[in-house]
Structure formats: C-alpha cells, structure tokens
Design a binder for these strands. Structure first.
Lengths: 330, 330
DNA sequence: ACTTTTTATGAATACGTAACCATTTTTACC
DNA sequence: GGTAAAAATGGTTACGTATTCATAAAAAGT
C-alpha cells in the first residue's frame, strides 16, 4: 500500500510536509504544494483513515443499531441517519439487530471505537446504558427508551396510543381491539397505556379477548389477527401499536377477505412514509413535525460529538392523527 | 483509552502476551490466561480494531454504495447484504448515493481501506472500474453493470423487459406504454430493449407518445404518467422499468381516479418484497430463485475476499412473471 | 544428569498518520 | 546590510496492535 512516506520520497520532501499538504495546505509554499500533489496523483495515494483515527483518537464513524428494514419505520430512519451523517462527514456502520444479537452488536461498535452510537433497540434495563455513559461514548436512543429516561428522541407514545383509540371511539366504534408489541419495550408499553386510558376515559372495556401484546414477527401478528376475527363478537376496529403492525394486519385482512375500512377499521402509529401510498392510505398517528426520529437522533448525536455538550437530550415530539382511508364510521 | 499495554502492566505480563490471550489463547498457560482475562475485565479493555487493521492490512469492513431506500429494491438488497456480512464478521459502511455524489462516496471507501465494495450504481463507463481492478480491491456490482461486463450479479434484464411486454400482449393489450429509467443505465437499457423486442415480435408499435425513459424521481415518473393518460388514445397498460416505478405509477393512478387493473394494467420488474402486500399485489417480473441480488452480491464478494479467487463473477439470474393483481385482460 | 525438544513469555519493530518541537529559509524592518 | 520576526520545512515520536525473533522455562529423551 502506498503511504505518505512513499509520496514524500517521490516528491523529495518529508512525510510531515505531505501531511501538511493534505491538512493545512495554507502552511505550504506553492511550488512544494505542486510537486507533492503531483506525487500524490502519480502514485495514486489515498490517506489511511485508520492510521489517522489512531493518532487523532477520532474515527468519524457512527454505529447505527437499527431494527430490520422490513419494518418501514426503520427504512425512514435509516435513510435519514445515513444521509445526514454522510453530509456531515461521518461514515455509518449499520447493523440490523434483533434483541438476541445485541451483545455482539455492541462489541463490534466498541472495537471500532466509533465516535457515537444510535440505538433503536435498547432494552428497558440494559446495562449498556451505564456502560456507554461510563465509557464516555455519545449515544442517542430512538424508537425505544431506557429506564434511566435520558438521551432519547421519541414521539409522545402515550398520547399516540390515546389518540389512536380516541379516533376509533369518535368514529363510533365500540369493540376496539389492540394489537401491539411486547410490553417489555417501553414504546409499546406507553402506547398501550395511552390506549387503555382513552378506553377508560370513554367508558369502553379494554380487556382480554381484544388485547394482544405479542411479538412483532409476521406470524405472531397474523396469529393475533386470526384469533380476533374469529371471536363471536369480532372487533369492528383495531388499533395497531405501530404502522408495521397495521400493514401486517391489512395484509391479513385481505387474506381473510375482509374489506378495509368497510368490514374493519385499522389505525397505526408512526406515520411511516409508505403509509401515504395511494393503495395503502393508512390512517395513523405520527409526529406533528416533518422531521423523522432518525433525523432528530443523528442531529443531536453529532451535536453531542462535536460540541461535547453534556446537556442531556430528551426530545418528545407531539403527535396527531393522519386521517387517511383505513378507518370509517360504524 | 485503555490499551493492551495498560492491561499488560495491570496483569504483570508483556503486551505480547495480552495479544496472545486474545488471538491465540491456546499458546498461553492457564494461570497467565486467568490473570490477563481478569485484568481485561477489570479495566474494561476493548481492542482497537483500527490499530489491528493497520498491522494486519485487513479491516473487516465492506463498503456498500446503495441506491436510496425509498426504492424498495434497495430495502431488500441492503438488508440481505448487511445481515450476511455481519454474520460473516464484516461491518458494512453504507452510503445511499445519487449519481452526482459518486466520487465522494468512492473516496470515503478508499480512505477506509475497505476489504471490498458493493456498488449498486456504477456508471456504464465509469473509470472507477479500472481503478478498482488496478487497486486490487474486490468488488461486485449489482443492479447496474459496467461496460466491461465483469464482476456483476443481475437478473436477465432483457428477458425481464421482454416478459413484461409479452404478459400484457397475452392479456390482449394493444396500446402498451413503457415507463423506464434513463437509458444510460445498463439495467434500464436492457429492460427497454427486451420490451421493444417483444413488441416487435408481436407486431405491435412501440413508439413516441407511449415511451418514456425518464429520470426515476417521483416527480418525473408522475409527469410521464400524466402525459400518458391525457393522450387521445391513452394506453390500456403500462410496463414499468422497475417495481419502484410501478408503485409510483399506481399511486399516480389513484390520484387520477383510475382503477387498477380495471382502467389500467401495470406490471413492474424486480419482484420486491413489498409488492406481495395484499393492498399492492403488484404483478411483476423477477428472479426465479428466492435469493435476492444483494445476497448473491455479498456472498460472492466475501468469497472473493477470503479465497482470493480471481475467476471473474458474472451471474445472471433467470426471470419469470409473478402474476398478481395489477394486470387484467382487456 | 545432561542434552534436546517443546512450551511459554518477552523485547523490539512495523503499520501510516498527525503533532510536537527544532531548524532552516525567507521576509520585514530599521 | 544586519538583525528580528515570520514562514516553511524536517526530524522524531506516539497512537495500539500483531508479528518476528530471541530467550527463558519446562518437559522429554537418552
């Protein structure tokens, strides 16, 4: 591999000068500049970012631990994160992790001495939180939140759950089901609590046969759906804990020959980009602002990295209903 | 930052021994092993991958230059690539590039001395091809192909275009439009040629007002769509150069109050995962095998990296029509 | 018991860069 | 023209690891 020393020799200068040509060219005389640049070009020299990071103790790399892209929420956030980071001169190491691979994912990020981390799937009481703080690695969680209640960007999940139920109630629905994710995940937990509160406020029952807090795999959602529609008094509407779940349910409904919203109303949470598509037109609850959570997360993270600001990030975006075509009056 | 030297000092051994504990523990006596591991744990030591890569001349990193995720094709491939690479112990540096940012993207990958690259958007006569070969960096292109016709995985694009037209013809369509991407992109070019061949074989005209080879931005597709449906004899069907285009057209159709497939048939190419969704049910042409192009690309790339095999990769997957619900007899 | 192997450890070095300090060259000023 | 200041360049080192080579300790063979 051709190094700055090779360039130096070829140009008849010191390695130091080569380094200067690249980093502080204003300190180098024009003739020297020219011959070094000529040598760089001739030898096809490309500086080694790893060597640089070693001496500067800065990698310009960010680790993104995202959920899987078959969940469109992560499509939107990953796009926003990678693009903004690249714009700011950072590379992004992406991993799509499931909860059971978290340890390896953390280890990989640590070995690469990343400048910061964005975590979509931190566990509620994950010791990683303490470890990251102690190791002084800037990080932001999105999508999920840690028990310590710091360094996160989120939407107002309780309110989102509340609004989703309220929306159905205002459309006259009485038998409203809930299909959400595991309650060990803070996000789903709060959304569910919001849902329950709305049901309570409007004196509607929210109990056993209508409530599923299940795993978010395709099979588990479909299973919940099939249980629900085979109830004697099947629900007229379902509040889904996330758009990905709602989309899954819509697919299931079609398989079951149920028309949406005529036979069944469905509302999601997240307002993912694709929910706008004409064929989907998913009614959903999402952030009032146009900026997605991934964007907020990476913006704050880079701010933390560069300004070393320690003020703890806690961002909760307000939400509203995006009324599209998957819900209907009964 | 705590280094292996710190661990060595703390454990009362040499740095060499610490290195051995991590890489070749079978060469270290048990008592030594124990005390070094204890020190590692106590000091919270994590080896520095950059320092290692410097001396080993291997980064265990792959650069992925992907198209944007709002194109679902890249959702599928990115997932496959990142997951497989991680499984094999590689980190993936992802960039979502547009053609005009290619140079910067290449530069970033070079600086990081990645072990290999996966390129989705190589230009037909991009000099990068020669440069990569000359720099001896293993690489694979997918989605697009270089003029040199080497190191690619693709579907049979000509056949895909051919089958998409043939499908419409067999359904009795006479006025069949084409909306594809720029012909400077090999993929679109071959798909278009296939389309033309089918039209010719069946004695149907394929000419001016029905043909759009446009930019793939949402606006440009929509513009093409609006031109098409306002023709005096508007087409009864559209062959789209890619599923992303087809999905765009479907959205446009709904906006224009045209029912699919009743008022207009649409077929795509790629068979992206989401096209299966019950609400989309996009008829499309895609690879016969279940493995997506991203998977093929990363598998071949890692093979190249690890086995240094030089046999040039040229993989062309056969295609077939996936008949769903966006096309109909006239 | 003494040599020969084998096993276990350590010292020194290289990887490619930026940073620090020292030195030389140029410019400015009187 | 001589000195002081400024500008330009070079020598050396550190970053954290794996590797090569050398040495010490233990085991095996006679």
């Amino acid at each position: 591999m051709v190094s700055s020393k090779d360039v130096a020799k070829h140009a008849g200068v010191s390695q130091t000068t080569v380094s200067r040509v690249l980093n502080t060219p204003e300190l180098v005389k024009q003739p020297t500049l020219d011959k070094v640049r000529k040598a760089i070009h001739e030898l096809n020299y490309v500086p080694n970012a790893h060597a640089r990071s070693l001496v500067q103790n800065k990698t310009n790399t960010i680790a993104l631990l995202s959920g899987p892209l078959h969940n469109p929420f992560f499509v939107d956030t990953t796009t926003a994160i990678v693009n903004y980071a690249n714009e700011k001169g950072y590379r992004v190491n992406v991993q799509f992790v499931h909860d059971h691979q978290l340890t390896e994912a953390y280890a990989a990020a640590f070995e690469n001495k990343v400048d910061g981390m964005i975590l979509s799937c931190i566990l509620f009481d994950d010791p990683i939180f303490q470890k990251l703080k102690q190791m002084n690695i800037p990080f932001i969680t999105y999508n999920r939140k840690h028990a310590r209640n710091e360094y996160f960007v989120e939407i107002d999940n309780f309110e989102a759950g509340y609004l989703s139920a309220k929306h159905m109630i205002e459309l006259g629905h009485k038998r409203i089901a809930w299909v959400g994710g595991p309650l060990t995940v803070s996000t789903f937990h709060h959304r569910y609590l919001g849902f329950l509160q709305a049901m309570k406020d409007f004196n509607l029952p929210a109990s056993d046969p209508y409530i599923y807090n299940t795993d978010t795999s395709k099979e588990d959602i479909s299973h919940a759906f099939n249980q629900l529609i085979h109830l004697e008094h099947r629900p007229t509407s379902i509040c889904a804990g996330a758009d990905s779940i709602a989309l899954n349910l819509m697919d299931d409904a079609i398989q079951a020959d149920l028309a949406i919203p005529d036979d069944l109303s469905i509302i999601g949470i997240d307002n993912v980009d694709i929910s706008r598509h004409g064929r989907l037109q998913l009614t959903t609850v999402g952030s009032i602002s146009e900026e997605n959570l991934g964007y907020l997360a990476i913006r704050e993270l880079i701010e933390m990295i560069e300004n070393k600001k320690n003020s703890c990030i806690k961002i909760t975006e307000s939400v509203k209903v995006f009324n599209r075509s998957t819900t209907k009056k009964v």
